[in-house]
């Protein structure tokens, strides 16, 4: 599994996840997302464009992180349009809690809508 994080703007961070997310690889994602929260990130886009496999362990981490973001006054949005993965979100009924959209750009827009006071565009700055 590959994980990369980048700052989208002053308050939004995107975490790009590629490969396969299962019970073996999930702890790495949990550590990365917890690390972002510890550094103060509250508005997180999780971009699953390059993810090919997801099951309930990965879902649990995404839902848990979404809750932590909200507790910190932010939110999380998942970007995914791979058919077999979207099916997992649909069956589990997690599209709403994860603000599921198709692309990372839509996810960032979704978070901006949720956080109206967010200053726009200081893009391209690498977080880690």
């Amino acid at each position: 599994m590959r994980i990369r994080t980048d700052a989208v703007d002053e308050c939004t961070t995107v975490c790009r996840v590629g490969g396969e997310l299962d019970a073996y690889t999930a702890p790495d994602l949990r550590d990365s997302l917890d690390g972002l929260l510890e550094k103060g990130a509250r508005w997180i886009v999780v971009d699953l464009k390059d993810l090919t496999y997801l099951d309930s362990t990965g879902l649990g981490i995404l839902v848990g992180t979404a809750k932590k973001c909200r507790q910190a006054g932010g939110d999380l949005s998942v970007a995914c349009q791979r058919r077999n993965l979207v099916r997992i979100f649909e069956i589990s009924g997690t599209q709403e809690i994860l603000n599921l959209v198709a692309t990372a750009e839509e996810a960032a827009t979704r978070l901006q809508e949720l956080h109206e006071g967010c200053p726009e565009d200081a893009s391209g700055e690498e977080a880690t």
Binding site: A23, D55, I88
Partner: peptide, 20 residues
């Protein structure tokens, strides 16, 4: 291919339950 993707998740869920 879609059938297989579904079944891969189902099998992994069963195995993950054993592990956990």
């Amino acid at each position: 291919v879609d059938d297989i993707e579904d079944l891969k998740v189902a099998v992994a869920e069963a195995c993950t339950n054993v592990i956990n």
